[in-house]
Nucleic acid binder design. Sequence first.
DNA 1: CATAAATGACTGTCCAGTCAGACAATCAAG
DNA 2: CTTGATTGTCTGACTGGACAGTCATTTATG
Lengths: 174, 174
Amino acid sequence: MTAATRIIAAQGLGAATAAIAKEAGVSNGSLFTYFDTKADLINQLYLELKGEMGSAALGGAPASDARTQMRHMWSRWMDWATVNPQKRRTLAQLQVSDEITAETHEAARLAMTGMRDVFERSRADGPMRDAPATLVFALCNALAEATIDYIIGDPDRADEHKRSGFEALWRMIG
Amino acid sequence: MTAATRIIAAQGLGAATAAIAKEAGVSNGSLFTYFDTKADLINQLYLELKGEMGSAALGGAPASDARTQMRHMWSRWMDWATVNPQKRRTLAQLQVSDEITAETHEAARLAMTGMRDVFERSRADGPMRDAPATLVFALCNALAEATIDYIIGDPDRADEHKRSGFEALWRMIG
DNA sequence: CATAAATGACTGTCCAGTCAGACAATCAAG
DNA sequence: CTTGATTGTCTGACTGGACAGTCATTTATG
């Protein structure tokens, strides 16, 4: 998985399975004893990274008001992405790949329940309380991804951008 | 170009050049008299679609206050994407492809000046007036893309979602 | 010794890009 | 008006390389 993350981050999804095997220090053939197909590997990797991102974002959440909780999650989320740029990069690629099956996407959605709850709580009394939950979640997600990309492009001002992004988000839903 | 748009929308960037040539009604070989390489085709297509999207969004802009102008642009933008789902789909694929050169991205950025101006005007007196312009633009873009995706997934309530998205955007920057 | 795991050479498939020749358009000379 | 030389465009079979996945064999393990 680690090897796949590194190789895909560097070469994209077109990377040869042989390259991944080599990076992992196993033979080409061995890789296919662990994963039936390349698509299988990709799907498993997607779930693992998504899950890790979710845990990272939710970890150590304070029992507090919605805004504080949201800000905490936002901060952890951004931090995870900046500390793990390769994982983040690979995840972004997998996100838009059509190798990811509908089942995998559904499983990922379920694994994100914790994060969705935080968004739900934050918007419950805000201006978007009547919009569809999935739309709100999609918009929040989009803001987060964009903020992360921006931070990666200008890491020196990471904290500043993190705050700008959060405040933009909060104005939107809070 | 039209053929490439159709094929890429359907099959992704992995589509064979032969498939594009066939769809266009010319021979495999002919395609390479018009484009040196597949990458060349992809880059040109990206610029064309991006340009078309920009023109569509800016067309018939009213000389009016920032909010009205912004809403107009937003509406035309969403409409273009819903009326041309294949173009939109292909553009989304090209956007994240690493076949697109830095020069092409730069050219596309320049072609979007008109849209950036509208965003600039809208945020000039708002809460994001001190944030970097590129960050603001990235966030707005992200909201637009997410809204479009959502509308495509539930076209029956298109108008409603279009409004939700715009209001979210305006709360963020206006 | 028996079983499981790992190996890497190999195969079939796919595809970007090439090239030798077919075909069409233009035009100067007879 | 005809001819044939010239130029430019189109064609699709072909090539070389890349790559996912297989499998007979080797190596480790209990």
